[in-house]
Simulated scan of single mutants.
Amino acid sequence: MELNKRKNLLLGEIILEYIRTAEPVGSKYLATEGKFDLSPATIRNEMAELEKDGLIYQPHTSAGRVPTPAGYLYYLENIVKDKQITGADKKKLRPMIIKVSGEDIEQSMKDLAKEVAELVDSAVVLALSPYNVFYTGITNIFKQPEFFEKQMIINMSQVIDHLDEVMAHLFNTVDQIEVLIGSDNPFGQDTGAILTKCHKGDQKVVFGIVGPLRMDYQRNLSIINYLTAKLNG
C-alpha cells in the first residue's frame, strides 16, 4: 500500500498527536491546529479513506480517530525519514555505554537498561541468555493513561508473569532490529516493542524497549539503532 502525499501527512499528524496526548484525534483539531490548509469536511473524507485502509479507527466513545497497529507500521516504513538519534539523547547515552564492560557485562547491561528505561519513560527488557532475563521500568507502562483500564492491566500482568518464556524465545529468534506491533508482539497487543541483538565480545544480548502501543517509535528506534551500533564489538 502506498498513500498519496496528503494522506501521508494526515496519518503522520494523527500519529504524532496521539502519541503526545493519548486522545483520539478529530478533524476539527487537524483543520485548526494541524499543518493543513484544508476544511474539516475534506479532512473527514481523507480520514474515512485512511480508516477504510485499516490505518486508523474510531473508538466507540469518540468522534476522533486513533492509529491501528498497521497504521504505526506504515508510518515507520513509509513516513518516518529521519531515524538518526538526536544530539540530546546521544549525549545522555554515551556515558552509559562507556560503562558497559566485559569484566561485569551482566551488571553493566542491567545498569544501562535502567538508564534507558528512565530516558524513554518505558520498560526495557534484557536477556543475557535464554535463562538470564531482566526487566525494568514496568511502572512507566502502567502509569500511561490507556493502562488505567483494568483489562489492560490484567493483560500486561499476564505478559509479565510469562516474561521469562517470552524472552527465552526471543533470545533464540531475534537476529537484528525488529519492531513488534499488534498480533506479532509477544508482549501483548496493547504494547509496542523494539528489540535488537547485540554481541559484546563473546556475550550475546537481546535488548529491547517495550511501551504502550502509541510509544514514540521514531525516537525509540533511533535509540535502539544507536545502542546496537555502539554495543556490537
Score class of each variant (00 low, 15 high):
Tyr18Glu: 10
Pro67Ser: 07
Thr86Arg: 09
Glu165His: 07
Asn4Ala: 00
Ile154Asn: 00
Phe148Val: 00
Glu23His: 11
Tyr226Asp: 05
Leu93Tyr: 12
Val179Ser: 03
Lys52His: 10
Glu51Ile: 08
Lys91His: 12
Lys81Glu: 14
Thr61Arg: 14
Tyr135Lys: 02
Glu149Trp: 01
Ser62Asp: 14
Lys200Met: 03
Glu46Phe: 12
Ile209Cys: 01
Asn4Trp: 00
Thr136Tyr: 02
Phe207Ser: 01
Pro69Val: 09
Pro67Gln: 09
Ile98Asp: 12
Leu195Ala: 01
Ala127Pro: 03
Asp82Gln: 07
Ile181Arg: 05
Gln189Met: 12
Leu128Gln: 08
Thr196Trp: 07
Asn220Asp: 15
Gly201Pro: 00
Leu221Cys: 01
Phe147Tyr: 13
Gly12Leu: 04
Asp111Ser: 06
Val66Trp: 01
Ala229Asp: 12
Glu165Arg: 11
Leu38Pro: 04
Leu76Ser: 03
Arg44Leu: 09
Leu38Asn: 09
Met96His: 10
Lys90Met: 05
Arg219Tyr: 08
Ser129Gln: 11
Ser129Ala: 15
Ser122Met: 09
Thr139Val: 11
Leu38Gly: 03
Asp190Lys: 03
Pro212Gln: 13
Asp121Gly: 11
Gly233Leu: 02
Tyr217Arg: 00
Lys52Glu: 15
Pro130Met: 10
Asp53Cys: 05
Asn155Ile: 00
Pro95Gly: 08
Lys5Asn: 05
Ile85Thr: 03
Met109Asp: 05
Phe148Trp: 00
Arg65Trp: 06
Lys114Pro: 00
Leu213Gln: 14
Tyr18Asp: 10
Gly71Phe: 07
Gly34Tyr: 01
Asn225Thr: 07
Leu231Ala: 03
Phe36Lys: 09
Glu146Tyr: 07
Val80Ser: 01
Val125Glu: 03
Met47Pro: 07
Asn4Lys: 02
Leu76Asn: 04
Tyr72Trp: 09
Ala123Trp: 04
Arg44Asn: 15
Leu30Lys: 08
Ile98Ala: 12
Thr86Tyr: 08
Leu50Ile: 11
Lys200Leu: 10
